[in-house]
Design a protein around this nucleic acid. Structure first.
Lengths: 212, 212
DNA sequence: TTCATTTTGTACCGTTTCGCAAGAAATGAA
DNA sequence: TTCATTTCTTGCGAAACGGTACAAAATGAA
């Protein structure tokens, strides 16, 4: 159902590439400040083609984010739920996040959701719901991981699972913001490393094992 | 130098009120999505009056933020540096922040800096610098407070001061984002409370004193 | 009254915004 | 060749954008 030659004039763009290029514009400029002309230029598609292919501006944004999420979800989920060590799992999780925030050419683009639609979220209920859903997803993932760790005895059994998960989510939010504010990659890595270490310490991870 | 009647036609607006109203618009809509017409309506000032009084759009934003910062800085600094207990100081600090994020009418407006210009920060260097400066200010304050605590023996003397401060900053960033995503006030208060408690635990605050 | 000064209101500038209509171009099928 | 189909290109249109020119209105000073 993919390499069907179809009937009419063949399209000259690759939908996947186009959505990636569109997302790049949104990440650089923010949602409102990105115009259809910007998207048109970045994707090498005329505006009518954009509409025909993806819909209006918000639909373009949503489809671009969905593609990005699906592409980057795999490694994050792997780090969280298939890496046996909680510490390594969290380190890899945030490492993947930092990679994504710096994707391509080193210019820090930040999170395509948290950093891009945060400004519009309070005024536009649809955008607000999108932001809330993204926050909720991360919370849920991290809570599940910490609950598993508590049950498996990796952390103190009476640890505050929700509180710990919220702290890890806070790290994610902070990384997104700092990337947006121009922080360099090593700085973010150091922050993530220290943050995870302190959260694990507060969680009673691995007894007293801490090298610092 | 204030109640000078001046010479020409008396102005019909109060600059302080006008800036507060303008900031409200920016917080609701985000920076780019707020037009001069929105500001004009919210302030009851004609656009030319806005220009004459405050300058262009970005200048209006900056002056509004500056006024907000100056008004809310006092209580935060008091909580951080004049409250003897580190725990109570931090609780009050974040309590004040949550108050500010929900200021007026209960609609969660979020942080006028972090949540409003985050989208545009990567594209506009001036806005980017504004965001970076705001992040830097919080980092600096929290680092100073934790350094004092370490020196005074309130927390473990070999505690990772920078790491702990970064975790507290992350809480601030997370609160801003969650407010923007529609979280309710009690939820934010609970998150802040748990986060501070866990940070203090990781810092070795007060030996082993923890009620949970 | 008259004048200088300051603010206000109206009206406009050129540009950019999102969105779409309509026809040209390129293909497979008949 | 001819036709149906799909995509691309050109160009438009109504509205909104940031910003400003200019004159009317309101004051203190002379």
């Amino acid at each position: 159902m993919k390499s069907k030659p179809a009937r009419g004039r063949p399209r000259e763009y690759d939908p996947e590439e186009a959505l990636a290029a569109a997302l790049g514009e949104f990440r650089r400029r923010g949602y409102t400040a990105t115009s259809l002309d910007h998207l048109s230029e970045a994707t090498n598609m005329a505006r009518p083609s954009l509409y025909a292919a993806f819909g209006n501006k918000f639909e373009i944004y949503r489809k671009a984010v969905r593609q990005y999420s699906e592409q980057s979800a795999e490694q994050r989920l792997h780090a969280l739920f298939e890496e046996p060590s909680l510490q390594k799992g969290l380190e890899d999780y945030f490492s993947a996040i930092i990679d994504a925030y710096f994707s391509r050419e080193g210019s820090p683009l930040g999170c395509p959701v948290l950093s891009v639609i945060s400004g519009e979220a309070a005024a536009d209920p649809v955008i607000g719901a999108e932001l809330a859903a993204a926050v909720e997803r991360s919370d849920s993932l991290l809570q599940r991981r910490m609950a598993i760790a508590a049950e498996a005895g990796e952390i103190s059994p009476d640890a505050d699972v929700r509180g710990l998960a919220a702290m890890l989510a806070a790290l994610q939010h902070s990384l997104a913001l700092r990337a947006r504010a121009g922080a360099r990659r090593p700085e973010l890595s150091a922050i993530a490393h220290a943050h995870v270490a302190l959260v694990l310490k507060a969680a009673g991870y691995g007894g007293v094992t801490m090298h610092g």
